[in-house]
Computed example of a mutant assay.
Amino acid sequence: MYIVITRQHLGDNYNGSASDFVNYLEKENEGKAPEDQEFFFNQTENDIDAQRVIAEIDANTSKLSKKDPKFYSIMVSPSQAELKHIGNEPERLKQYTRELMKAYAGSFYRDQEVSVKDVLYFAKLERERTYSEKDKAVKENQAIASKILELQHQIRGIKEGREQGDLSKLHERINALETEAPHKQNGKRIVPGMAKEGHQSHIHIIVSRKDVTNAHSLSPGSKFRTSETTLNGEKVKQGFDRDKFYRASEKTFDKQFGYRRNFVETYYARNLLDKDPKQFFATLLGLPSNEKQAAKQLLFKAGVKVPSIPTNQAQLAYKTLMQLKKGIGKALESGSIGI
């Protein structure tokens, strides 16, 4: 399960209103008949239109300055394995989102317990994901892409009379390079913006920074998990525990749908790899044989090029350790492993 919390962008791309972001989330509805469109939903309602989302988020900004983010976005991106487990069913993803937001509310540190009823949010299901410059396939295709771009510039120069050359040979060279690309999908070189194959359903959530009463701040962007500050002479609790939220998110999915999560799919494993890679691999080595084999298969599917998982502590040499960490780290960043 890959989850990202992002504050509202205030600048050229997004203004103070939620309209730009909401309109961006409407991109998959373009050109579709109303009955085929995907609408927003919240904890209790379905089929919420975009204008209502904009109106309610924009109106819920009491005492926030122009420089303060008015909302946060949460992207919930299940792995291929998780989507397969639930049959890629939209309703099950919506059910999960509603349980997820209970965990979100429970991750705030406040004097009074925060419940999901206190949170103003709207969510939307999307069925497509596209490749970006960060994806491993795009990065490894970049050398080929640069050569093709250079040849295309030559062709443009010849057509405009600025250069001389054989157009047919240049086109042949481009075709040859296209076949040499290490990563292709349906016979075509993978490039940024290309839709990914397979189940790609994911959820975008827009959540107001203020609670439903428009009186209290609920910011997941807090620098503190738990802290206390003095306000009007009284101590006030504040903070948001992202680690707690991420851990609860995957536990919620596993419990709700009976999913058996392998060690390398866990948020704990991701943190351990980053902070203590030697302990990560020691834990991996200590898994039961069937779980260790499943972990190896997950790493292989994620494109981690390792000859084998080390079989004992003596093989955990520094160089091997760092090579494995780099490979697994890239897979985690791209969401290839279900974290």
Rank of each mutant, 00 (worst) to 15 (best):
G233D: 02
A81W: 06
G161M: 06
I158R: 05
G329H: 05
G198Y: 06
K84W: 05
L10N: 11
K244V: 08
I190G: 04
I339C: 12
G338M: 02
K325N: 11
N88I: 04
R110N: 03
H204A: 05
V119E: 02
Q95V: 07
P182C: 06
I54W: 02
P220D: 02
Y96N: 01
K84V: 02
H216C: 00
Q256M: 12
N312G: 07
L287F: 08
N60W: 00
A317G: 09
S17C: 12
F108T: 00
Q293F: 10
R242K: 09
Y104R: 00
A103G: 04
P90I: 08
N15S: 11
A331V: 03
K301E: 15
N23R: 08
F280N: 05
D276G: 10
V53R: 01
R127S: 12
T283M: 12
G303S: 09
L299W: 14
E126L: 07
L299T: 09
K244W: 07
S168A: 15
S65Y: 04
N290G: 14
K235L: 09
S289V: 15
A215E: 03
N46C: 08
I5W: 01
E30D: 10
E28P: 04
F41G: 09
T44H: 09
E197T: 12
I174G: 08
Q293P: 06
Y72I: 03
G165F: 12
Q154G: 05
I158N: 02
G221F: 00
L64A: 00
G157S: 15
A18F: 04
N271H: 07
G106S: 11
K255A: 09
I74H: 02
N42D: 13
E234M: 07
S249N: 04
K159V: 07
